[in-house]
Amino acid sequence: MTGKSLPLLLALAAMALPGAAGAQDNPDALIDASRQVDSGLALANRQIAGNDLLGALGTLERVQFAHPEAVPPRLVYISLLCRLDDREGAEVELSLLGGKPIADSDWAGVAAACGPVTRPAPPRKGHR
């Protein structure tokens, strides 16, 4: 285990502990969990499940600062904008994805939250 991963593991462990009420209120734990895509998405999903939609938006913004290339956090971000009734903002965010491949399972979340919305075209063969 590296020294770098220890704080993240401790933060995740703290949030996963039964009865760790308020662990999601610990700013340092929130920051550590947002440093990686998977843990950031897991945190955002917990926040969404707890109806903390704005907290989830903040988490995903942190994830995107560190991993701007990652598509799944952007899709969850877009679905959150729809749930927060910022449809125009969601469409603008969607346009930024360009030709990035989108997994059907990820897109399902956007469609469920946003309703009818144009899915960005997949990249053509021979193009990145």
Partner: peptide, 19 residues
């Protein structure tokens, strides 16, 4: 206009990883 504002606040996927 919204996009121009986002250009000051947001990242885009094309920027690559690593922060």
């Amino acid at each position: 206009g919204l996009l121009a504002l986002q250009s000051l606040l947001r990242t885009v996927p094309e920027e690559g990883g690593g922060g």
